[in-house]
């Protein structure tokens, strides 16, 4: 029985914008919150924090390796640092510091990578971050979160202050469709079943959650019941939600704006392999670097749309 969608999916703020606003709110209630940025504050939106709390904002210049370890030093002396840059630079240029000064000693630094995925658009592949989830998840002790919309990002930033572990939080450049109402409850490490369903499950994070909902709506009209799960926390993974999805729907599609070979998909597959193996398909970036273009053109060309998810669903259902 087709049901009417409860989602309008109107464009809201970009998740980087939501981060910039939320970290200011957090700074007002928590005097230990400090922010570091590497000459991108007008893009990462930490400029809001810099304006309101100039003494607690540290411009690091274009030196991400140093910035990450400065954040570690601040945290080791009692501060709650949010270290921000484009995801591409925070992760790739700060990776060794993230490993050795943050993850390995378990230092409570929050790294916020903005402009993730390929939807940064015209700037092209040197600025795109399609490896960040894989790199972040390779580090023991690091919590990895990819919020889907402004509501989720705001909630995650507020929750992060009480989460006593280092985190990588992934944000996007472009306006993101609003999925959640303000009263939605979030918990780090707990997936959200956005739409119930019984024939197949789509597990997504970030911008692709909205695309998964659109795919669900399209197939609902055909009588295919699609469960949509927002796996906002990619590490630690909500393995119970995956086991349940595998058991109850018997097929899984993972959709993400990331390389399919190292993203959420491989982690979901590993979890399902351990609990209840089922046919799986993957919608994401397939072992390639993208190019310049508008975000919409790139999401179309590189297969990150609802149509790509519905195609993956049909493939997986054929194998069920």
């Amino acid at each position: 029985m087709p049901t009417k969608s409860k989602f309008e999916l109107k464009l809201g703020a970009a998740t980087r914008e939501a981060f910039g606003r939320a970290v200011v709110e957090l700074g007002r209630v928590n005097p230990n919150v400090v922010v570091c940025d590497a000459d991108l504050s007008k893009s990462t939106m930490t400029s809001y924090f810099a304006k309101e709390f100039p003494d607690r904002f540290f411009e690091c210049g274009i030196a991400e390796a140093n910035m990450t370890a400065i954040g570690a030093g601040l945290a080791m002396a009692g501060k709650l640092p949010f270290v921000s840059s484009f995801s591409c630079f925070a992760m790739n240029k700060g990776f060794e510091q993230l490993r050795t000064t943050v993850a390995y000693p378990g230092v409570n630094v929050k790294v916020v990578g903005t402009h993730s995925g390929i939807s940064i658009g015209e700037d092209g592949p040197s600025q795109m971050s399609i490896e960040d989830i894989g790199l972040a998840c390779s580090l023991p002790g690091l919590t990895v979160v990819s919020p889907a919309d402004e509501v989720a990002m705001k909630a995650i930033i507020h929750l992060s202050a009480g989460h006593p572990h280092p985190m990588f939080i992934r944000a996007g450049r472009i306006k993101a469709p609003v999925i959640y109402t303000q009263d939605q409850k979030f918990e780090i490490g707990k997936a959200i079943e956005v739409v119930p369903g019984s024939d197949v499950t789509v597990i997504a994070h970030g911008l692709l959650v909205a695309e998964a909902i659109r795919a669900q709506e399209a197939l609902d009209a055909e009588g295919i019941s699609v469960r949509v799960i927002d796996m906002h926390t990619i590490k630690p993974l909500d393995e119970a939600a995956i086991e349940r999805a595998a058991r109850e729907t018997g097929a899984i599609v993972v959709a993400e704006e990331h390389l399919t070979e190292t993203g959420l998909g491989v982690r979901v597959a590993q979890a399902a392999a351990k609990s209840r193996p089922v046919p799986m398909e993957f919608a994401g970036i397939d072992n390639t670097y993208a190019e310049s273009g508008t975000p919409d053109e790139l999401l179309d060309k590189y297969g990150l749309r609802a149509t790509n998810i519905t195609a993956a669903i049909r493939r997986v259902l054929a194998r069920k």
Binding site: V34, A69, I70, G73, G78, K79, P81, T101
Partner: peptide, 25 residues
């Protein structure tokens, strides 16, 4: 210990972060 070290090049940044925190406090 004040820090885990061994991968060279990182301690100066850690010290500066600690120095900034002391100033803030």
């Amino acid at each position: 210990l004040e820090a885990s070290t061994g991968s060279l090049g990182q301690g100066l940044s850690l010290a500066l972060g600690m120095g900034l925190a002391a100033k803030l406090d």
